[in-house]
Design a protein around this nucleic acid. Sequence first.
DNA 1: TTAAATATGTTATATTATTACACAGCGTTA
DNA 2: TAACGCTGTGTAATAATATAACATATTTAA
Lengths: 131, 131
Amino acid sequence: MQKQETLSKNQKIILDLIEKSDQPLKAYSILFDVKKKGINAPLQVYRALDKLVEIGKIHKIESRNAFVACKNSNCQVSKATAFSICESCEDVTEVSNLKLSKYLNNFADKSGMKYNKYNLEFFGLCKNCKK
Amino acid sequence: MQKQETLSKNQKIILDLIEKSDQPLKAYSILFDVKKKGINAPLQVYRALDKLVEIGKIHKIESRNAFVACKNSNCQVSKATAFSICESCEDVTEVSNLKLSKYLNNFADKSGMKYNKYNLEFFGLCKNCKK
DNA sequence: TTAAATATGTTATATTATTACACAGCGTTA
DNA sequence: TAACGCTGTGTAATAATATAACATATTTAA
């Protein structure tokens, strides 16, 4: 949590916004929302997003080009991420399952390549949409 | 394999191109390459790509906005995909590991959501780039 | 107290993807 | 065989996502 203190102005504004949303936000919707705070250009948003992803405060949902706050309160670096995505309502939830992350962090296939990061996205129908 | 026969002209041209490449291709690079075959517009490419993804002939590498041919020769539907991506040379390989796919296909977390699809991307350095 | 590193602001532009509309070919079925 | 649904094609325009290039400010650390 101590890293929070050292965020820059724009980074704070944008992290705040993302943390207040329970769903992933897209870069240009963020831009729209922060214009009233003096952030005027896409690049200002993307720069903050890049930094926030880098330090693990937010994650990018690659299949949706959208960003969510990290729910692992102690997450410092974004290197092992998993999400479940409802294909109907687009609700996204971060999956935190110790077994899963252990399994994937230790995964090695025959290529001999050692992975230092992964991103997993599950798709399905959420409880509400299954009804 | 029998589905191959029923691909349309544009779909065949584009699948051919992707299958001949050992690395993921981006939509506009595909467009550039197939102009000589009479495919002139992005939409023609995207439509073919959508279809090919749908029937499992190719996969989209979400983090790279690029498309690779499916290496599972008998893959009919693209519902469980895993790739390893070298962050230095951008080499991408499809991971086919029965244990992994079983594990992920059966994965269920506390949300009770049942997944019907997933996409997993591992990142690291490939053998060549590790040297 | 200067240099290096990080962040900001702005304009322009590149890259990725979709909307909207018109029409062609093919198999069904009525 | 005509009407229909379905899938695919072609084209133009535009939307959505992301980065390059340049100038300047602020913070950090030697």
